[in-house]
């Protein structure tokens, strides 16, 4: 019994220690943000590996999610004779929820894990220590460009996901199932509002971008510098990101759309 309590206490202590470290790490990154203005090229390189290379999976996932959503929603809506509202249903679910959340989950799998593995291996092979020895701050040189690239990429990717998803449901709904073309877009424009739905979706994806990139770079920077440790850190990145994104999504949804 006492052993069990001790175990509980130790793991609690461990969690708080990690949280504190992560917060200090975030503050350290915030303080170093100015360095990006001196070396914008570092950011461009990371935007390429974090953002550009994630575009393919985001676009393809968005297209298939939109097509499946169009197909399934049509089957339900047609029973009530309201298949004209396919447009707003798909657009609202994509811009409010599916776009930001699925993009964040895919992003943590595609780019977050790569960030952690890269930084973790740099640490394991002592590249970070070498930088420190050469009086180059590894946080400014390695971590901050990757973090900022993640934060910038996420809203762009989420917007692409939603836009492509709506096109996918348009292809299935209007092209294959025979929903009226005009009704699809006009009902959508009637129901979706810019500030309430689209801007809130972008704010959500921005928040997810900060959280996922933060988790990824912190796990890499804080990894145990062994082969095993880097592998575990990469797994942690994906798992923790998923929990954080889904939990944060509920809180943000309650704050943004809860009053309706």
């Amino acid at each position: 019994m006492l052993n069990w309590l001790q175990y509980l206490g130790r793991s609690g202590e461990h969690i708080f220690e990690r949280l504190g470290k992560a917060t200090l790490f975030l503050l350290q990154m915030m303080c170093g943000l100015a360095t990006l203005f001196k070396h914008p090229r570092l950011l461009v390189r990371e935007l390429y590996s974090v953002g550009v290379l994630s575009t393919a999976i985001i676009v393809i996932s968005g297209l298939t999610v939109g097509m499946v959503l169009g197909l399934q929603m049509y089957n339900t809506l047609v029973d009530f004779g309201t298949e004209d509202s396919l447009g707003p249903v798909v657009a609202l679910s994509l811009t409010r929820e599916l776009g930001p959340v699925l993009t964040a989950l895919l992003f943590s799998g595609r780019a977050g894990s790569a960030l952690t593995a890269e930084i973790g291996l740099m640490k394991a092979t002592d590249q970070l220590s070498v930088m420190e020895m050469m009086a180059v701050d590894p946080v400014k040189r390695v971590i901050i460009p990757r973090f900022v690239a993640g934060v910038i990429s996420m809203p762009l990717l989420a917007a692409m996901f939603s836009a492509v998803g709506i096109l996918g449901s348009y292809i299935v709904g209007v092209g294959l199932l025979g929903v009226d073309d005009g009704a699809f877009w006009s009902q959508m424009q009637h129901k979706v509002s810019l500030d309430r739905d689209i801007i809130n979706g972008i704010i959500k994806s921005f928040a997810f971008g900060i959280v996922v990139s933060w988790i990824a770079v912190f796990q890499g920077y804080d990894a145990v510098p062994t082969t095993e440790g880097v592998g575990r850190a990469t797994t942690h990145t994906v798992v923790h990101s998923a929990f954080a994104v889904l939990g944060l999504d509920f809180v943000l949804t309650a704050m943004m759309f809860g009053d309706n």
Partner: peptide
């Protein structure tokens, strides 16, 4: 191209999807 595509997607959401 990536940044332009992202902004274009946002623009499409704003103009074509919302009111």
């Amino acid at each position: 191209v990536f940044v332009a595509a992202g902004l274009a997607a946002f623009f499409m959401l704003a103009m074509k999807v919302s009111n």
